[in-house]
Amino acid sequence: MAHIHLDSVSVEFPVYDSHARSLKNNVVRFTTGGRLMQDANKHVLVKALDNLSLDIEHGDRIALVGHNGAGKSTFLKLIAGIYEPSLGSIKVDGAVSPMLNLMQGIEAEFTGLENIMIRGTMLGLPKAKIKEKIAEIIDFSELEAYIHMPVRTYSAGMMVRLAFSIATSIHPEILLIDEVFGAGDTKFMEKAHVKMTSLLDQASIVIFASHADDLVKEFCNKAILLQNGQLIKIGPVAQILKHYHLLNQ
């Protein structure tokens, strides 16, 4: 059973930028973004996540709601294991499939086919397994002969189709999504929507960061409201969205 447990987790980024040190105040609060402070060596610290404790269970489809810089992406990267907490502890049971930035890792000089191999290898799939998936990916992306062409010859839409098809060819256990919708033309969008729905159905836990209310309402059964890196509220989607919009006014 997939399960995620966070126990008073904080994530702090040091910012090593010479001019950033001129910040006079020890703590500056902004309405967007994490809190800025200084560490013992006068480095600016961004407190991206502040003392988060929660449990995420099998079957949870969680929407992350909040301003830009509220800590949504940091939260996803924390679950993905990319960031480790500076304080507190985190325990993730289950294989994590991050879909954070679709275009990332697509190498323009390589062909579509080569990019599929690269991505598959990086996700830890054996060669035979990748080869199995290739047909499915090519078929879904509708790139046909273009799959043998370098990605730099693709149009923006084709590139998104390739990236989306590669990213969604997985069988996820814990699925992390960071605003990946809006791919390609209308026809592909519909197809992508169906694909995403089936992907979400397969996953035992989904965490979805989005600003699109209708998608959140459609896909999620729970929501977390983040502000300045702090967990403001967790609960049913409708209630949290309402709270979030009240906060915005």
Binding site: K77, A80, I82, P98, N101, Q104, M122, L123
Partner: peptide, 9 residues
């Protein structure tokens, strides 16, 4: 960097 920010390896 860019890869490290995307996939945990």
């Amino acid at each position: 960097g860019p890869v490290m920010q995307q996939i945990k390896m």
